[in-house]
């Protein structure tokens, strides 16, 4: 492993992210913050939603922000750079085994997703207060869940970014990310699906369910949630599966 090259590639990504800081922030936070404001503030203060919804909503919004950020940060550049601009070719020729370039992308995407997730908490808290009740009983569990969610979003971005063509970006959002979010227990706990027993089972294939429920279980455990150990196992398995699939697709794209 050539650390100098790895660090130089990270420095390049950090440099580009710094340059695009303002659009990146808007793209990451504008939508979740508007959602928080409408559902957590407007709907609650007008009496259409109970006050407790504020606290229930926060982990889901955090999961959405992290997944969007991670997928966007890894998948979008890969789609463009492999197909249209071929910008990635120079980095594929860097003196390092090519899979490490994919790992560097995942590493940087994970960092971005972590920042996105952790910034949502104070931002949403500011928008929603008073009335948000966070109960961080086990910081370690919270840290593990957050890290696994961030990693899942970046690995998912790698797998998606190396599997779909530029013409299918719209489909990626409408057929993959949007259903994932709506059936990902982001705006409601998994137990709320009890009236739809088949759907409740089917959504368990959606990794975002474990992300939302895990964050719910560690941030606002006063609400019903899936057991945290089960969430940790499921997220670890999803991370490993997406990373393996992503690396395989990456190698197939990089070498013809």
């Amino acid at each position: 492993m050539n650390w100098k090259t790895f660090l130089a590639l990270l420095a390049r990504d950090a440099h580009v992210a710094r340059r695009n800081f303002a659009p990146l922030v808007l793209q990451t936070f504008l939508q979740p913050m508007m959602f928080v404001f409408i559902f957590g503030r407007v709907m609650v203060s007008s009496g259409y939603m109970p006050a407790a919804y504020k606290s229930l909503l926060l982990p889901g919004i955090m999961a959405i922000s992290m997944v969007f950020t991670g997928v966007w940060a890894v998948a979008m550049p890969l789609i463009a750079e492999f197909q249209f601009t071929r910008e990635i070719e120079d980095r594929l020729l860097a003196p390092m085994e090519i899979s490490w370039l994919a790992i560097e992308k995942v590493f940087f995407g994970t960092l971005q997703a972590l920042v996105a997730g952790l910034v949502v908490i104070p931002a949403a808290w500011l928008l929603l207060r008073p009335g948000v009740e966070l109960n961080l009983r086990s910081p370690l569990s919270f840290a593990c869940v957050t890290l696994l969610v961030a990693l899942f979003s970046a690995c998912g971005g790698l797998a998606l970014g190396c599997s779909i063509s530029q013409t299918h970006i719209g489909l990626m959002f409408s057929m993959v990310l949007t259903p994932m979010i709506f059936f990902g227990c982001t705006y409601y706990p998994w137990s709320a699906l009890a009236h739809f027993p088949i759907l409740q089972k089917v959504v368990l294939v959606n990794p975002l369910v474990y992300a939302s429920e895990g964050l719910r279980g560690t941030l606002v455990p006063q609400f019903p949630h899936l057991p945290v150990p089960a969430v940790l196992v499921a997220l670890t398995l999803f991370d490993a599966a997406f990373l393996a699939a992503g690396l395989r697709q990456f190698r197939r794209k990089a070498v013809s």
């Binding site: 492999f82 197909q83 249209f84 779909i164 063509s165 013409t167 697709q249 013809s256």
Partner: peptide, 9 residues
């Protein structure tokens, strides 16, 4: 891929 410019659909 070096010639096609397309991706995996």
């Amino acid at each position: 891929p070096l010639a096609s410019g397309g991706g995996f659909g």
